[in-house]
Design a protein around this nucleic acid. Structure first.
Lengths: 217, 217
DNA sequence: CTACAAATTTAGACTCACCTAAAAAAATGT
DNA sequence: ACATTTTTTTAGGTGAGTCTAAATTTGTAG
């Protein structure tokens, strides 16, 4: 059974390596985990002998498939808990991270499968990040800012980048929640604002706001 | 901030001392916490200097008010999580303990208050144990086995003692769930069986079953 | 190519929570 | 009352995960 620290290292390595694409350096990891390089070296040796990563002195670490599957399980739990906190308990999505960091380490496959079921098998968390399935498969979706869309294009809201609570309230009011469909009616060249339709209601959206809404086609 | 181990010690001390009534001995604690007496002595010294308990060599420990409030906060979380697991996620109440042992250590007052609200401020957990409020006050209720009731008395089901899944299924079928009202219609002296009404339906209940249903007047 | 800077590793130490074995105190039986 | 048993404490040690300071390796600029 992996310790809390080991799980956190693997999660960070997974993220910093872009899902295992590139190697991760000691200092990057130390920074991400709020610890010192010397501590990272120690832990990295341990994870290496356990074959969750491969480690070459002075060249950084690469995550193995074994390591990836641990990382993805933790990420799955993190994102499901975040979704639960927001959808079920009414947390604002900028309040959930810290708690989810704790909940992601609860050991019980039954629990997380029940939460998944209870939430109706969501595909993305409240930040719009995809939730790995029980086998660790991620369905990755192309996210782009609303402002990049062409006139006439249809898309689905996936997340909001900023966590300003005025913005959140405004979006709440116009029904711009993750999952909602959205069509770009027109764009104003001179100020970057645009007109959109959400459930056949039309709204004007400023350039600033349109940069903070993430959508998928 | 208290460590996981410290919280577990305080919780055990609280329980073993009958809510702080009597002193707890080193060996009792070692047994309850699955550890060795020598380890208990160490920890008990630490908790004592932090004033969560008072400790007198060879005479055991007594929990202080400060210690009680920590213990009650942990117990509150444990019981709310158990209630959540059973009521919301459909766990059987004999499957929840291990997971709740982990969840009770999640640090977030907001989270536990939201869970409490979501559950509708339950008074007892699925085992019929009372849930302390946010201030640590426990409303204790007189529990007794159904078999002890006199003919004609009305009561509310509070919990089921046994965790036999056939029993649980049977009780499910006749609607004998915690919270349900129940009236004793008649008692048979020769075999201890009794007839009860649950929501104006009448059922025969054997002596064995009546020993496993806990009620409150 | 060499000297310096930056990144990384090693060495040694700390805290936490646990352990075993031995010593000490308290409880018990006759 | 005293010897034996039981309980508890002390002493010393372990592993996990962290730290600082020093040593080493790698990268870079002239």
């Amino acid at each position: 059974m992996l310790s809390l620290a080991e799980e956190n290292y693997l999660k960070s390595i997974y993220h910093l390596s872009d899902a295992g694409e590139k190697a991760v350096l000691t200092n990057e990891l130390a920074e991400a985990l709020n610890t010192k390089a010397a501590s990272v070296t120690d832990m990295v040796k341990k994870l290496s002998t356990k074959e969750f990563i491969s480690y070459e002195k002075y060249y950084g670490v690469k995550i193995t498939n074994k390591g990836k599957s641990v990382a993805l399980a933790v990420i799955r739990k993190h994102r499901l808990w975040e979704t639960f906190l927001v959808q079920t308990l009414g947390f604002k999505w900028d309040e959930v991270h810290e708690v989810a960091e704790q909940l992601e380490h609860i050991k019980s496959t039954l629990l997380i499968e029940k939460i998944d079921e209870f939430l109706g098998y969501p595909q993305v968390d409240p930040h719009g990040d995809p939730i790995p399935n029980a086998q660790g498969k991620i369905k990755k979706l192309e996210k782009t800012a609303l402002k990049n869309l062409a006139t006439g294009s249809e898309s689905t809201i996936v997340a909001v980048k900023d966590s300003d609570s005025n913005l959140l309230k405004y979006l709440e009011k116009i029904g711009a929640k993750p999952g909602k469909k959205l069509t770009v009616i027109s764009k104003e060249e001179y100020d970057g604002s645009l007109q959109v339709a959400i459930e056949s209601q039309h709204y004007f959206i400023s350039k600033e706001v349109s940069e903070n809404i993430l959508v998928t086609l």
